[in-house]
């Protein structure tokens, strides 16, 4: 069984929602990554989403754009990101690692080469933001037999036809973007989220993760009532940006633990 499936199965048995923090690989600088990844796990992350820096992150809001720019100042490329995952795997063989990024850096490396290298590094899932299912034919072919899950997005404006298209090809989990807009925007309506998650569940048995706009533990707790996983992105990226370099690990761990505690309190699991 894949690390992602095993993780969700274990959590389901414990009736706990998964906590999925997002950080941009190489932000603020590559040397911080081992400490940041360790802090995410120590704070209670179940799955780690690692952003691949791109010069033109069209779907991201200011916080994640800036993090991409900081990483790019250090010339962090896709191969460097894979090396970070491989290094992480030396001390952690359980926590699933999902890469999230844009198509161009991956196409530049070549889909087949990327899949081989990603598998070797210990990547469990990949979400290519600008590959909707209808443009994913070659990508899905390249993934076949690799054990790497193709993760896809759904949004508040997704039609049933879109949900169907995603359900047919998605693996790992479905990532529901809980807002109209870009990452890091505000104002999430948990009632709308609940209704949409219900629509998604009709079409797929995959776990449903919810992200975009979850900035505090209370919102995370409300979202977790209807979702299998909660994705926290901009808020953590912001914390990394604001923390003095020596405190980044500790601050990230503390923040992730706050979310973890809130999620577990909801279902009555001792933290």
């Amino acid at each position: 069984m894949s690390r992602i499936a095993a993780t969700f199965e274990k959590l389901r048995a414990q009736k706990r929602p998964a906590l999925i923090p997002f950080v941009t690989a190489g932000d603020p600088a590559p040397e911080h990554m081992p400490a940041i990844l360790k802090a995410l796990v120590a704070g209670g992350a179940d799955v780690i989403e690692l952003g691949v820096p791109f010069s033109d992150p069209m779907a991201d809001g200011p916080a994640i754009q800036r993090s991409s720019e900081r990483a790019l100042k250090h010339n962090v490329g896709l191969r460097d990101v894979l090396a970070m995952v491989a290094a992480f795997r030396k001390s952690n063989d359980a926590t699933p690692c999902v890469l999230m990024g844009y198509a161009n850096p991956i196409e530049r490396m070549g889909l087949a080469t990327f899949v081989t290298e990603a598998r070797r590094a210990g990547v469990d899932g990949v979400l290519i933001v600008d590959y909707p299912p209808e443009e994913s034919g070659p990508w899905l072919d390249a993934l076949k037999g690799s054990g790497i899950d193709p993760i896809f997005l759904l949004s508040p404006t997704s039609t049933d036809a879109s949900i169907d298209r995603v359900a047919r090809v998605a693996g790992g989990y479905v990532y529901y973007v809980s807002l109209k807009g870009v990452t890091g925007a505000t104002n999430i309506d948990t009632k709308d989220v609940e209704a949409m998650v219900r629509r998604i569940r009709v079409k797929t048995a995959l776990p449903v993760g919810v992200g975009f706009g979850i900035r505090d533990a209370a919102t995370a707790q409300r979202v977790a009532a209807c979702a299998d996983a909660v994705v926290i992105g901009s808020r953590i990226v912001q914390e990394i940006f604001e923390a003095p370099p020596v405190e980044i690990g500790a601050r990230v761990e503390k923040l992730v633990r706050e979310f973890r505690t809130a999620l577990d309190a909801k279902v009555g699991v001792a933290a």
């Binding site: 069209m58 933001v129 600008d130 909707p132 997005l153 404006t157 997704s158 995603v166 973007v177």
Partner: peptide
Amino acid sequence: GGTFVAETLRAALD
């Protein structure tokens, strides 16, 4: 060509 966009833009483009 094509439609290489995040799902968030799909409905608008449709």
